[in-house]
Design a protein around this nucleic acid. Structure first.
Lengths: 373, 373
DNA sequence: GTGAAAGCGCTAACAT
DNA sequence: ATGTTAGCGCTTTCAC
């Protein structure tokens, strides 16, 4: 019923308890030198007033906010949301918090990074988003680590405000990502082993660095086997674009007999379209593989062969960097291995190929990790 | 190459520009009384120093942070992630930011709310999460609006730390939610009209308020038609629990000929299991309806009948409350109407029922809104 | 229009 | 162990 409008301050508590305001501060500072009696007295007063220390004020003094800024460039993809989920829980345990910004799908993140910087975030995590090297430099100068999650920081993305500068260079920043190269190779190898010969690649938008990486690894591997390079179709990370691209690649003649998709979302879209618009039997008439191993990939409905990006491991790595870097430290690029998940979507079911290939690499227990550079 | 560790302050800028520090402040305050010349001089100096106003300091003075706290209790559900996405974009445009916490699935949010309160968030949005009425009271007293998104605030949830207090009461707080009652009625009506007679309800966890609401509305409607009450199976919002529940309801004898699921996720899981484990043809052998109208519901793969929760409209409403309430104002409960989406998963395809029912209510353009109380 | 000075709520030396 | 005193970086009177 009380119509108080301002939260009680340490001063209020001090007055009520009849002690100095500093004493209140100490009562709320773990390991401060304060007597048991005093502490209890303060805590009691604080309790009755409903006092809560003001972290804004604390941040101002300490010069660090306990907040890490996170920018998500592709919120539609459940992989990034799962990563956000894991990160939030991980940072919560460390008493840190997340200030989050979700950008439009292809939009540059610079502007939002500036916003976050004004709040003096202790660190920055960029998911599926890039920033100009200029900004990245500034962050480093101010001691704010910038961590690229699942994206090489070396620009070539739709970079900053048209001024034509390139994005941040790889060696300058932290990064954690899945093993695009190895995963792609394993998938390509599996496809060929299954007897598929006329391969295709269904990508994301043309500018997507991830899509480019996976495509080039795929193409390189196929060529190295002495086969003609796979056809490629540019796609998108949103449903409409992915559907359009799926139709396009399925309408090709000759139609590829197996398609490696840039991620599970696109792969599931392809399956959806192939089945219901083209009447194709997945696996036998067209092989489909994805990337990420999102939970739905293992649903019988999709039964999608894919290479996992172990989000929890990756977030653990990311959190370690974010937390244990009061002053940046040496930039590190971390690549986390996944596991090839063999499923029905690449089961050709022909006599000349083994039903269930026995690749030793697949289905190994937990995924390992590997630090590059 | 410079090893600066501290960000430049307004004072630094003032010195460089040869003006007072107050002038710097004014240069960065829209509509402050400052001459053009002065402003430019300051801005130039700020530019060369890479100065960024410290919002932490500003917050301390102004008594408001420009930050709204968001707690998400069910991050697996793409509906809430979509809501987060929309909210972030909406608040960004208003210059506000989001401090986010994602809790364990069933966990109480109180502890996290306290965290956010220490950062002096201007408002609180709770998605699929509840708090004790005690805490809710405190917030109101301090002028921090609490908005429940898609959950009645009136407790009965796994409420606070075992102290047995009930959750916040409905009239005390803000809330924005979809029209559970109306949507459920429309779905039930449609099911009956299609000729399904042996209905079932596949819920979320027993404590979920949303699940309870939809179940009771469903049961009430069916009973009101003079039919026996539908069977119900308690489910979960995670895959494993949902699969288990799906198997359970499909194993019943007699098996229901149509199942209304608490949301699209559960409904899609049911379809997955019914098709691949029970070999049932969706629609003809078993009708399935969901709730939410998540994008995937309209994929041919699922073709799921459902009632929409218009996330954008809902978030607009929420944002309006969050932004336009410097000091709470009168609590408001908002219910946003959705639209019944008729799809193949409830097409029985029998002669005695129309293939495509012509319910005038369905497929109307945009969804409206309705303010309760 | 501009500068000087007083805080916002807290922490961190200093004293005692 | 406790109180006193400076600030953290900014906004906001208040003079001029």
């Amino acid at each position: 019923m009380l119509k108080r409008v301002a939260a009680p301050s340490a001063h209020d508590v001090a007055r009520l308890a009849g002690v100095s305001q500093a004493a209140v501060s100490r009562a709320f500072t773990p390991g401060a030198s304060i007597s048991k009696a005093m502490k209890e007295k303060v805590l009691r007063a604080a309790q009755t007033l409903g006092y809560r220390p003001n972290l804004i004020a604390r941040s101002l003094i300490k010069g660090q906010s306990g907040i890490v800024g996170v920018i998500i460039g592709n919120p539609t993809d459940s992989f990034f949301m799962a990563a956000l989920d894991a990160l939030s829980k991980r940072l919560s345990r460390a008493g840190k918090h997340i200030l989050i910004v979700i950008t439009e799908l292809g939009a540059p993140a610079d502007e939002h990074v500036e916003d976050l910087l004004e709040y003096r975030v202790d660190a920055l995590l960029l998911m599926a988003a890039g920033i100009s090297s200029n900004l990245s430099d500034q962050c480093r100068k101010e001691g704010i680590p910038v961590l690229f999650f699942c994206r090489r920081p070396d620009g070539a993305d739709g970079s900053a405000n048209g001024k034509g500068r390139r994005g941040a260079h790889a060696d300058d920043s932290f990064s954690v990502s899945g093993n695009d190269r190895e995963g792609t190779r394993q998938i390509a190898g599996h496809l060929l082993q299954q007897g598929y010969r006329n391969l295709g690649f269904l990508g994301g938008p043309a500018e997507s660095p991830t899509s480019r990486d996976r495509e080039s690894a795929f193409t390189a591997y196929v060529k190295a086997q002495g086969l003609p390079p796979p056809v490629r179709v540019v796609g998108a990370y949103h449903r409409d674009g992915a559907v359009r691209a799926a139709r396009e690649i399925l309408s090709l003649s000759p139609r590829p007999d197996a398609v490696f998709c840039v991620n599970d979302f696109v792969a599931m879209t392809l399956i959806d379209v192939a089945r219901h618009e083209f009447g194709l039997e997945i696996g036998r008439e067209i092989g489909v593989a994805g990337f990420d191993d999102r939970p739905m990939a293992s649903w019988p409905t999709f039964d999608l062969t894919t290479y996992s990006q172990p989000v929890d491991t990756m977030i653990d790595q990311a959190a370690e960097i974010l937390l244990a870097s009061p002053d940046c430290g040496r930039p590190v690029q971390i690549v986390v291995d996944g596991v090839l998940q063999l499923r029905g979507s690449t089961r050709r079911g022909l006599a000349d190929a083994p039903e269930r290939p026995s690749r030793p690499k697949a289905t190994r227990g937990k995924s390992g990790k590997q630090t590059v550079k």
